[in-house]
Amino acid sequence: MSVAQRVHELRRQRPRDRFLRGSLVLLAAVVIYAWFGGDVRVTELFSERRAANLARFFGHDAMPRPLRDAEGGGGFGALLQWVGQVWREKGATGVGATFAIAALSIVLAGAYGLLTAPLASRTLMRCDPYLSSEDCAWWRSVSISFRLIAVALRAVPEYMWAFLLLAVLGPTAWPAVLALAVHNAGILSRLGAETVENLPRRPLAGLRRLGASRSQIAVSALYPLGLGRYLLYFFYRFETCVREATVLGMLGVVSLGYFVVEARARDRYDELLLLILFGAILVLAADFISWLARRWLRQAK
């Protein structure tokens, strides 16, 4: 066989991953269908009415009020004054409430995740080396149910949880807190379980052979070994929690979103954009806090 033929033959026989290839083809097909199947119409964006809408929005609606009314003083000083006023009347409350909601909910979610991580992991549930075969089925069902609960909790978006809880609990901050807590509890429970599963097996098996019970293993090995990693995840989720908390107010709870919706109802889009800007700064600040915390934790190792 010539070299060319050998190359051809080897290429023909190359190991192929059908699942991967099929997945990529399927995803590409879905994307193409989404853009060209008539569900998302790009041309809609370029109608004259929309252009006029856009011009009005940026030329007038979104323009800060003090800059708009030239006779009302105008200028940079008036702008600053306006920013200060919106901050005092709405921004401060909204930002504070948003941050508090996020902080409380992530602590609740973190506690749930911490408690259920070993239960939802496959590690302690394995017959070998942790269990004798008779209680294997029972522990496996525990593990599976905790994982299923986690999936159900995180599959439903925070916003929908808040919407449903609001109807039951009424307009306090609880619906927002619980909605965020529930969704993130699902996520942290899963991430915690993964952390436990990825711990080195040998020290755990060693403990088991020494006669340690499951709870003793958890207390003496799982938590000390996995806590650092888990806390990293925790702070990652804290970031997203603050981001989500800004919008939950749109349902009627006092967070930034509440004031956003209220500004929209009054057609005050300049105020709306300013409030969103406050929110963005809050989210960036939370990012920074989370980054600091994670760095601090990493250095501890």
């Binding site: 964006l45 856009l54 979104a62 989500e244 800004t246 749109m250 979103g257």
Partner: peptide, 18 residues
């Protein structure tokens, strides 16, 4: 740093429903 729902509020005002 701005949530997609807030982007949606702004874009709905700027572009309209689409």
């Amino acid at each position: 740093s701005v949530h997609e729902l807030l982007w949606a509020v702004v874009l709905l005002a700027a572009l309209g429903m689409s």
